[in-house]
Amino acid sequence: MIDKTFTCIVCPNGCKLNATVLEDNKLVVTGNKCIKGIDFANNEIFNPKRMLTTTVKTTFNSMPYLPVRTESEIPKEKVFQVMNVLRTTVIKRQLKVGDIVIENVLDTGINVIATMNTEEKRYG
């Protein structure tokens, strides 16, 4: 049996949720003011996911590090593993916002994409 308390972040109410997973994997949530709290607790317990944003080294003087993120959320437990991959990545070609930096990172099925354009010219 797992017992967990956390704050729901779906809306500004910030309900203090208490979630209990029973032996048959059934979830009991208390403290929620609405149904969204149950979904939230369900995801957080069985399949927590996070967006990862960081920077990746480039070979460009004007922008030594390029901001990147995962295209969508990745499993929470993979966050540090993906960080390790990105730590050793070096970008050598010009990229635009949305361009893929790493495809299907660590078989998550999710790409890592650039969130800024590498060429400086574009901004002035």
């Binding site: 944003t53 993120r69 800024m116 400086e120 901004y123 002035g124």
Partner: peptide
């Protein structure tokens, strides 16, 4: 500054 965007340039988070 030399780029547009103000403080958002350093806000890499989502």
């Amino acid at each position: 500054e030399d780029k547009l965007g103000g403080v958002l340039k350093q806000c890499i988070h989502d």
